[in-house]
Write a protein that binds this DNA or RNA. Structure first.
Length: 338
DNA sequence: CTACCAATAT
DNA sequence: CATATTGGTA
């Protein structure tokens, strides 16, 4: 049993980051339903989509999975017209997202899925794009390490198509990353976890930081035993369900399971040109799949998130993996937690 | 039984 | 290496 449940809300404030952290993240996940909706099995003659994708290095995640989903029946919203007070997504509603399509989906000849979806199809590998990860971190940050468990995180992220397993897996890795960093940052000059996370120290250079360094790590993460500043946010776990009203819920990017080559070195130019530089609030996205699938979550009656609706328009995020040594610019949150 | 976690497999 | 999958456990 989770013994902490008794006092988890007593310490909510501790973990509560600053409200401003609520980042209007937006991600698009191609959910199988979606794919199905688009009818992938009726692909255009396009062929070298994959090659194209490879060529389009700037974009790494936009392959369309041809997964036929285990039919998640669109649950008819039977809200008896009563609840649904704050539809505001805790972490972030999705700003306008350019519905860009990857075009295509190479059909693999596996298994004769010539016709109807074989019910035993697996989902494509989820690609944790920086944006997605950002959302992940935000969710964890907002939940607090204590409550940051896969299910909760998943719900908070509210990314369509994301499964608990996905989050769990990533969470595991994330924890490892944090742990590694704790050891390095503690006692060292780097008092700031974010700094270490950025890839400053020697701990994160090439490998581990790829994705993780993209998102600042909340300071409290590195020091679980030490509440930083007491945040006071008398918030209550409002049971927040997501569906209700259209909020762009995007999807995450997925890649083909098989065509997973091991060469990708393109994590570096995310900044969308349209935005002018990285960072830009609300404006940087990639060729992602945008679309939302009908509600598909279970009526889990669990707590929601103590977040409030973020104001869209302010985004931070950074990315710069140049091999220049050292120096990392952390465009941290406006709160300046570090 | 559900969910978490760590280990293991792909 | 990044995810997925599995097994044991709370």
């Amino acid at each position: 049993m989770r013994e902490d449940e008794s006092n988890w809300f007593s310490r909510w404030e501790e973990d509560l980051p600053s409200l401003e952290e609520l980042t209007p993240l937006s991600q698009t996940l191609i959910t199988p339903d979606l794919a199905l909706a688009f009818d992938i099995r009726n692909p255009p003659p396009t062929s070298t989509a994959i090659a194209a994708a490879a060529a389009a290095v700037g974009a790494q995640q936009n392959q369309l999975p041809h997964t036929h989903p285990p039919p998640p029946p669109p649950p008819p919203p039977p809200p008896t017209a009563s609840a649904s007070p704050s539809p505001t997504n805790p972490l972030g509603p999705a700003p306008p997202q350019p519905p860009e399509f990857g075009a295509d989906s190479a059909d693999l000849a596996s298994g004769g899925a010539g016709d109807e979806p074989a019910r035993t199809l697996k989902r494509p590998r989820l690609v944790w794009t920086p944006q997605l990860h950002k959302r992940f971190v935000d969710a964890v940050a907002h939940l607090g390490i204590k409550n940051a468990v896969p299910k909760t995180i998943m719900q908070l992220m509210n990314v369509d198509g994301l499964t608990r397993e996905n989050v769990a897996s990533h969470l595991q890795k994330y924890r490892l990353y944090l742990k590694r960093m704790q050891g390095l940052s503690s006692g060292g000059a780097a008092a700031n976890g974010a700094a270490a996370a950025a890839g400053l120290g020697a701990g994160s250079d090439a490998a581990t930081d790829h994705l993780f360094a993209s998102s600042p790590v909340p300071a409290h993460f590195l020091h679980p035993g030490r509440p930083n500043s007491d945040h006071f946010l008398p918030f209550v776990p409002v049971a927040a369900l997501q569906h209700h009203h259209h909020q762009h819920q995007m999807a995450a990017a997925v890649a083909h399971p098989q065509l997973q080559n091991q060469y990708h070195r393109q994590v570096g130019h995310f900044g969308s040109p349209t935005n002018g530089g990285g960072g830009g609030g609300g404006g940087f996205e990639h060729p992602f799949l945008a679309r939302q699938t009908p509600p598909q979550q279970q009526p889990v009656h669990r707590m929601g998130a103590p977040l409030h609706n973020p104001v869209p328009g302010y985004l931070e995020d950074l990315e710069s993996a140049n091999g220049n040594g050292g120096r990392k610019v952390l465009t941290l949150f406006p709160t300046g937690d570090d």
